[in-house]
Each structure stands twice: as structure tokens, then as C-alpha cells.
């Protein structure tokens, strides 16, 4: 119960990789690390997902999307929401981090750096548009629960930073 290992049947991975986070469509739920287990029992797939943030409205949509994708693949699906172990931004895969950056969202820094960025205004977050670290936080909270708002002082573009959650 306390393991952070995912237990996912390999046959299901291609199906699950097709399902994206409704708020960040470039990111699959696998890249996001929210699928904690997926096992096949007869004609039923039992899946456990964990929310990024408690109030994340995307979770209900993700649950429905999983059910319909598995139905297409000929499975019945039971989706359970689990809280423990709690999701951390460390579970976003390297591919997912790259997808975030390409999409214009700065990927989360480690916990220490995150703190000095959000609290002390240190310039460590890289602008996803031009790569400059000459950036300023506008607000600790952004367009969704998981993001903060930044602007780049060089190319002048505003952008989202995916906050570290650990």
C-alpha cells in the first residue's frame, strides 16, 4: 500500500498513453504519473489513479476517459481514486517534462529551488519560449491549481510554471 512503484499491465500501456490530461492536452496520463496501477482480471481492468491536487476537476474527466478507452478495447473498467501515496511532480516522466516545455509550460524544479523561486524571487525558472532565466513570478497561483504565473523579462512573454509538489 505504501509502495510508490506502479503496477501496470504492459498490454494496457498503449491504451492508457492515448488518454491525455484534459487541462494539459499534450501530456498523457501516463506521462503525468497519475495511473498507479492497472491490472486485468478476466474481462475487467482495475485501475487506480491518484489526483494531482485534491480539487483537480480533471480527475472526473480522466476517470470517464479511461472507461471509454478501455471499453473500445473490449474491457470493462473499474476506476478507483486513491490518495496514498500522494502524487508528486517527481512522477512526471522525462518525456512528460519535455512535452510541458514544448507546450509553453515551465517544468517543475526540485523542491529546494521551487521554494527559493516562489518565496525569495530567485531567478531559476527558464522561459519556455526563449530559454532565458531572467524571469519574474507574477503570482504563486495560476490558471489551474498546479501552476504559478511567470513572465519573461527578455522576450516579455507571460508563461505558466508547473509548481513542484513533494
Amino acid at each position: 500500500m505504501t509502495t510508490t512503484q506502479q503496477n501496470i499491465n504492459e498490454k494496457l500501456i498503449p491504451i492508457l498513453e492515448q488518454i491525455s490530461d484534459p487541462e494539459i492536452p499534450v501530456l498523457s496520463i501516463m506521462d503525468m504519473g497519475v495511473v498507479r496501477s492497472a491490472v486485468i482480471e478476466g474481462d475487467t481492468v482495475k485501475i487506480e489513479i491518484t489526483p494531482t491536487y485534491s480539487g483537480c476537476p480533471a480527475m472526473d474527466v480522466i476517470g470517464d476517459d479511461i472507461k471509454s478507452a478501455l471499453k473500445k478495447a473490449g474491457y470493462k473498467a473499474e476506476v478507483d481514486l486513491i490518495l496514498h501515496p500522494a502524487w508528486t511532480t517527481d512522477w512526471i516522466t522525462p518525456k512528460g517534462r519535455q512535452a510541458l516545455e514544448d507546450y509553453g509550460i515551465a517544468a517543475p524544479l526540485d523542491a529546494e529551488a521551487d521554494k527559493s523561486v516562489l518565496l525569495e524571487g530567485k531567478q531559476l525558472v527558464k522561459c519556455p519560449q526563449c530559454g532565458s532565466k531572467n524571469t519574474t513570478m507574477i503570482s504563486q497561483f495560476g490558471s489551474t491549481a498546479c501552476k504559478a504565473q511567470f513572465k519573461c523579462n527578455d522576450c516579455q512573454e507571460p508563461f505558466d510554471y508547473f509548481k513542484c509538489l513533494k
Binding site: 491536487y53 485534491s54 480539487g55 483537480c56 476537476p57 503570482s139 497561483f141 491549481a145
Partner: peptide, 15 residues
């Protein structure tokens, strides 16, 4: 910014 922050916190709490 503060509007978004307050509603984000609200969302966390309701979750």
C-alpha cells in the same frame, strides 16, 4: 492574480 489565488485555494479546500 489574487482572484485566481483565492479561487485556487478554494478549489484545494473543496477537493
Amino acid at each position: 492574480e489574487t482572484d485566481i489565488a483565492c479561487t485556487n485555494m478554494s478549489l484545494d479546500l473543496l477537493g
